[in-house]
Simulated scan of single mutants.
Amino acid sequence: MNGSVVIAAGGTGGHISPGVALAEVLSEKANAFGFESVYIHSLVRNQNNPDLLQPPCEVLWHNIPQLGGIKTLIYPFLFLIPFLKTIIRFRKLKVNAVIGMGGYSSLPAILYAILFRKSLYLCEQNCVPGKITRVFSRFAKKIAFSFELAEEFHIPGKIIGNPIRKRVIPEHLNIRQNENLHEGKKNTINVLVLGGSQGARQLNQMILKAMENSEIASKYKFRLLTGTNLYDETKNKASNDAEIISYANDMKPNYEWANLVVARSGAGVIAECLVFGLPMILIPYPYAADNHQKANANFIEKEGAAVTIHSTSDDPTPLVKFLLTWKDHSEVLREMGHVSLALSNVNAAYQTVSYFFSESK
């Protein structure tokens, strides 16, 4: 195959991060996989996304409008001009293959592949496939899944794992940070709280309330990544014992510090926790599209790497219950960590690219 390949990775970080991971592999091995060049196709509003500030390949920016709201009726007209620009650019760059990472922002690249009969591949991060995957799966040559799909969906493809960026991958694949919990060599359990790049007020408030319990405060040390917008609010309400951080560009040190993670159940966060062998308390975002975070959390809980809290309030009662149970039974966290690591696939990016494009010999 000659020409170039485009990775359509816009929308949210959950689409961008695995797309960048694929771009890292393809940029290094483009010729081996039969391509001259590799590009990322992403929204203009993502120009400040940390993963796209120093991308592994050139980023082609576009401004396709988001579907929905009062613009629905005039959407085709708003879509047309940016789409025509995409066509002209892709033709000039000899784009012969498109990898769609999901989300509405991948639509122009996917339509280009279909209209001009180019090879189309899809990556689905969640247990509940997004609308893009459901609608365009029949046009795709191959589809790669991060996790097992919810039982009501029957889309042909291969379960590989969520592609992980190189800078997040741990140096050593083990669960060393939890081994000493079981052996009684560590008195404090480090809890990393992740609300996503925009933060999650519910998680922040739940943790702060849980810390009011003296038994929890004496056994657990909390590090809250609040999100930039919620940093001041959380900092002002926190006690001196909580470590409050607005945002971390380099997540590896935080994962290495942690013994336990409390987080939303986006596919990207889950995949990163898995490669570090971390047990999780997952609190799904209840308003996620198609309630896909609930399905993700339920799958990881069923496998034994996490417990879930399905709640829209900041009531700390279920969280406190888990933490008090594990306070004197940290071996449970150790075993959950074993399961977590077993579910991970640190080579998902390379394996996904290899699945899509058989490497030439």
Results as ranks from 00 to 15, higher is better:
residue 209 K to T: 07
residue 161 G to L: 02
residue 112 Y to I: 00
residue 258 A to K: 05
residue 316 P to C: 03
residue 282 L to M: 06
residue 57 C to P: 01
residue 334 R to I: 13
residue 131 K to V: 13
residue 150 A to T: 05
residue 319 L to E: 04
residue 339 V to E: 05
residue 96 N to K: 11
residue 258 A to I: 09
residue 263 A to Q: 03
residue 350 Y to I: 12
residue 66 Q to E: 15
residue 149 L to Y: 00
residue 261 V to C: 04
residue 329 H to L: 14
residue 88 I to E: 14
residue 123 C to F: 12
residue 361 K to A: 14
residue 132 I to Q: 00
residue 65 P to M: 01
residue 329 H to S: 12
residue 51 D to H: 14
residue 145 F to T: 07
residue 244 I to M: 06
residue 319 L to I: 07
residue 77 F to K: 02
residue 112 Y to K: 01
residue 87 I to M: 01
residue 242 A to G: 13
residue 349 A to M: 12
residue 90 F to Y: 09
residue 58 E to K: 14
residue 211 M to R: 13
residue 69 G to P: 00
residue 300 I to V: 14
residue 206 M to W: 01
residue 194 L to Q: 07
residue 271 A to R: 06
residue 171 E to A: 11
residue 59 V to K: 01
residue 253 P to L: 04
residue 274 L to P: 00
residue 351 Q to T: 11
residue 20 V to E: 01
residue 149 L to N: 00
residue 61 W to P: 00
residue 117 R to C: 11
residue 293 Q to K: 06
residue 316 P to D: 03
residue 328 D to T: 14
residue 283 I to C: 06
residue 290 D to G: 07
residue 317 T to S: 11
residue 336 M to G: 07
residue 225 L to T: 13
residue 358 S to W: 15
residue 311 S to H: 03
residue 76 P to N: 04
residue 117 R to W: 13
residue 162 N to K: 03
